[in-house]
Amino acid sequence: MLWFKKDMANKDKETKGVLNRLKERLSKTREGFASRVDRVVFGKKKIDDDLLEDIEEILITSDLGVQVTYRLIENVKEKVKRKELNDPNLLKECIQREILDILKAEEKPLEISNSCPFVIMVVGVNGVGKTTTIAKMANRFKEEGKSVLLAAADTFRAAAIEQLEIWSERAGCKVIKHQNGADPSAVVFDSIKAAQARDIDVLIIDTAGRLHTKVNLMEELKKIQRIIGRELSGAPHEVLLVLDATTGQNAISQAKLFKEATNITGIALTKLDGTAKGGIIVSISGELKIPLRYVGIGEGMDDLKVFNAKEFVDALF
């Protein structure tokens, strides 16, 4: 139901102008990400509202979110008022340091303990890069001389099993799989038995993508986790949530609900090789305190890096 009939007749002209303006401005945004703060600060003598608005834009367009951004800006204003900060050139460092503090607290690389097998369950919403990240991890662990086994517990998506199999060949490890449409818990059960029998160091379980709001699917995930724990006490040793850096504020909801359901122990942030900044993990780290493990920076097997807070913050601006 609309209150009014559409009255669009002369709107077209008006909005076209807006669109053109927008395009110009966006191309400006795109031209360089390297040191956006340096650019807006350049030539400024003092920290004024204009400068702060530019900073606000940089933070928000990095997906830091309104709350974190406002807090950071407020803190700057506070410091300016107390005369602790008035040189625009120190602004960048000041904000970076605050963000760094938040992220540094969660810079906790994944350590593979001697659990035989060390079980990693990988979860996340659809298409974020779970399967690819698993391939990258398998490759990394193999290079460290560990034996790795994969479990194809995504029995739902078309060709998900085949995808994992191809990756496993490239990484040089085996996959435990059932038929398409099989019960994922059964796959997981078999994979644990196999890993124990074969004396495997690391077992990585690929699960189907699922939206965090789908109650039934989250229940399925809990069941998988229960079965892992039942078959091997203390397992899974890591529940890794994969987040896509392109995602906006919804990532917070993802992290919250996956944490509620499965008690996430780590995060991998993928697709940082694009132009998205992944700023959303600043909120997530601040609020939920989940260790940050890896970042994904491409589609190749080597495109996985251990999370480094300093590097991440430097790339934000």
Partner: peptide, 15 residues
């Protein structure tokens, strides 16, 4: 395009 996309949507769609 993914409905969950954040601020980067303009860069991606624009390009």
């Amino acid at each position: 395009a993914d409905a969950m996309t954040g601020q980067d949507a303009v860069n991606v769609a624009g390009k």
